[in-house]
């Protein structure tokens, strides 16, 4: 592998991590969804680049799925949900931005240290990819943990899935079945959680999951 292709793959995966960081400090829902769409676009680019350098044409399909569903369909759908729910002006973070960013940096360090330690004999590109993918997964989890709103938890969950796709495509010879199943699982999760949101809305007049806790008579 020559230096340029490696650098481009590295650049794309690295920008995914960077965009995950950007998600951490968005306190408006629209902004968060826009960033997520950007995340999906960069994922599609990265997957397409992997398809090109590995000469694996089926990965183009994965890239297309990522682009169409994650970068267009889901963000548009979430926009509409938010508008229908009338929560686009909500500001919501459970934990302050500063500590969240510090925790994110710690997580990325952890995944780098871990991945570089446990895969010394693997292909360097796959190594870097796996390390980045693990960072994205952990950052996605962090988004889920630090948000109170169900919509932003959904976004965190989907960015986590993006990390999984990145890991799957970074390794050579992964069959297409995996990507399609991953994509569909996200779609299904999106639908289920979308339905769930409306149920919450109907019942409690809010999508703040804290309302569920209030309903159970528990402290937050």
């Amino acid at each position: 592998m020559n230096g340029l292709t490696f650098d481009i793959a590295h650049l794309l995966a690295g920008s995914l991590v960077l965009i995950s960081f950007m998600m951490l400090y968005q306190d408006r829902l629209f902004a968060l969804i826009n960033i997520f769409a950007l995340h999906a676009v960069v994922l599609a680019l990265s997957v397409a680049w992997q398809a090109y350098i590995q000469d694996a044409h089926h990965l183009y399909i994965t890239a297309a799925i990522a682009l169409v569903f994650k970068a267009i369909v889901i963000p548009v759908g979430l926009h509409r949900i938010i508008q229908r729910l009338g929560i686009h002006r909500d500001i919501e973070t459970a934990v302050g931005i500063g500590p969240t960013m510090l925790a994110g940096i710690g997580l990325v360090t952890l995944s780098m240290v871990l991945m570089l330690r446990v895969t010394p004999e693997a292909d360097p590109l796959a190594r870097e990819d796996l390390a980045f993918a693990l960072s994205i997964i952990l950052l996605g989890l962090l988004v889920m943990v630090t948000r109170r709103n169900a919509v932003s938890q959904v976004v965190g969950f989907m960015s986590l899935e993006n990390g999984l796709v990145l890991a799957a495509t970074g390794a050579k010879g992964m069959p297409l079945v995996v990507e399609i199943s991953v994509a569909f699982s996200i779609l299904i999760a999106f639908i289920v959680i979308g339905v769930f949101l409306f149920r919450i809305r109907e019942r409690f007049d809010s999508v703040d999951v804290g309302a569920l806790d209030d309903y159970r008579g528990e402290r937050r």
């Binding site: 459970a94 989890l141 889920m144 943990v145 948000r147 109170r148 938890q153 999951v209 804290g210 569920l212 806790d213 159970r216 528990e218 937050r220």
Partner: peptide
């Protein structure tokens, strides 16, 4: 009896 976010 924890909240969903706490479980996560």
């Amino acid at each position: 009896f924890l909240t969903i976010r706490r479980y996560l």
